[in-house]
């Protein structure tokens, strides 16, 4: 373990020793419990919100809560908050690509059945 200290940005500016220099981080059970409680709380909120008539806002709120829950699962249960920039960038690029594909396909459908929307 003596050479562990060199695997940091500060001591290895050229990225020679360990190109990934991922600092290993263990998320504690207490943090997991906070995330768990938050997820359960927002599940309750989203069910309650579905029974209130908010017109166009109903699906928006439901999806916003789903996205929020997904983000905290990804950041903490899946440890992305503590991963290297390489992995963060890759995941971000993946989600961005998904949005691009949805937008382009939707653009095609909308423009083909003009007036049906």
């Amino acid at each position: 373990m003596a050479h562990e200290a060199i695997h940091t940005d500060a001591n290895d500016p050229q990225n020679v020793t360990n190109p990934e220099h991922a600092q290993h981080h263990i998320v504690t059970p207490l943090q997991y419990t906070y995330v768990f409680a938050t997820l359960l709380f927002f599940t309750g909120v989203t069910v309650a919100a579905a029974y209130v008539d908010l017109k166009w806002a109903n699906p928006v709120i439901a999806l916003a809560i789903a996205c929020f829950k997904a983000v905290i699962v990804i950041l903490f249960f899946m440890h992305v908050a503590y991963q290297s920039r390489l992995i963060k960038m890759t995941i971000g690029a993946g989600f961005f690509l998904f949005l691009v594909l949805v937008t382009m396909t939707m653009t095609d459908y909308i423009s083909r059945s003009w007036g049906l929307w």
């Binding site: 579905a50 439901a62 999806l63 789903a66």
Partner: peptide, 10 residues
């Protein structure tokens, strides 16, 4: 987490 609101709730 996405299936539940989309299929059941909205």
């Amino acid at each position: 987490l996405f299936l539940f609101p989309l299929l059941y709730l909205i």
